[in-house]
Design a protein around this nucleic acid. Structure first.
Lengths: 210, 210
DNA sequence: TTATACATCGTTGTATACAACGTAGTGTTT
DNA sequence: AAACACTACGTTGTATACAACGATGTATAA
């Protein structure tokens, strides 16, 4: 959605303005806003207006905790139900030797990373796990994207994904879980650092007006 | 919502009918339907109609798996962050010796049970855990209610909740987790059995028309 | 100068009318 | 008799007008 970038947290968004901006009536805008409210991106106060919810870093840490718990379950199911063929495909897709599929585009890389985690979740056969993991990925997307702005982190991601897939192929659940946990925590720590820098910059810009 | 009982899965629900039934216009009905669709209770096919989604038992098993994973995390956080005072309150509320707060009403009991699990989730300080657990509780509510139609299960629930709270108070995380896991699985097994019976009865009724 | 009452404005919530589209039923043709 | 085309109906999607209500600014009184 558009609110990932140019909308400041806390700012007001009225249905009328959005309708004029998109050239449609208030009805579909209203519908979209209700969906965004349900997803937690903005809160609508009756008869007052809609406000975009600021994302605070503690809340995101909470999502990462839940993510780890779900990824552990996801791996457990995948280790039981995914076929060797599926896991071999996964290994090949993330083999660090294959420089082909590599991309330096942060957005593309983030989509590829998400597809890795969702493939494991889907392979486990539990739709609820996949659903909640997808939801969390959406929630932490603005931060995760920062994770792939550095080439080193991309290399790391390839290596770790490959290891996880290999562990699964060998049906070594504890190793897969340990690697996944470390993978997620590393990514979180790195992204958290970059987010703090961005927040500081934003605060600086705000001081100088606009 | 009303779909918990008298609406057959797969049946069609039109906005116009609902609007007439509730005596309001289509607009708020439409809004509510979009919310229900987002929550997964019904699917709306463009230009065709809305259909209530049947709940299949495998899907519910998936939710129970996720629930266990989240409750384990919830306990871990609660064991770290909840105060002795909070835990003592919890113990008292579920002390089997106190026959006072007891209720035989399945709906009331289900609300009380939910409040126990949500209190632990809230006590851990992770809003995301609480949010997803709440969501799962809503999803499995139609089954869980069946769990409290028998007095024996109510006794069991009091006993198990009390033990969990006691373990937390003693800061014995593994014991609390083990008891919680058994508690949830027992509840699931029992409710699953009753659900199958209900489904069989419903199928039987359907055969005889109406 | 400060506090209070009031009026105006802007916003969301709701109702209603119309447009777009899919489905089912019917009539015709082969 | 069967298959196909067309028409009519019902449904959701959208636009617009109005109602309800909170907030803000202003004028008046103490």
């Amino acid at each position: 959605m558009i609110l990932n970038f140019e909308l400041y947290p806390g700012s007001r968004v009225t249905e009328g303005d959005m309708a004029a901006q998109f050239g449609v009536s208030r009805t579909p805008i209203r519908s979209a806003m209700q969906r965004l409210e349900a997803e937690g991106y903005l809160t609508v106060k009756p008869k007052q207006g809609c406000f975009v919810r600021p994302l605070d870093i503690d809340e995101l840490a909470g999502y990462y905790q839940v993510r780890i718990a779900l990824e552990m379950l996801s791996l457990e199911l995948a280790c039981t139900f995914m076929t060797d063929a599926q896991l071999k495909d996964l290994c090949e897709a993330w083999d660090p030797m294959f420089q082909k599929g590599r991309t330096t585009n942060a957005e593309k890389m983030e989509a590829r990373d998400e597809s890795f985690h969702m493939a494991i979740a889907a392979g486990g056969g539990n739709a609820a796990v996949a659903k909640y993991l997808q939801d969390i990925h959406h929630k932490i997307r603005p931060i995760r994207r920062l994770d792939f702005t550095e080439g080193a982190r991309i290399d790391c991601t390839y290596e770790e994904h490959y290891q996880i897939a290999q562990h699964l192929l060998k049906r070594d659940l504890p190793a897969a879980q340990a690697t996944m946990r470390a993978h997620i925590q590393r990514s979180e720590q790195f992204a958290k650092g970059l987010t703090l820098i961005q927040l500081a910059q934003k605060a600086g810009r705000k001081k100088f007006g606009k």
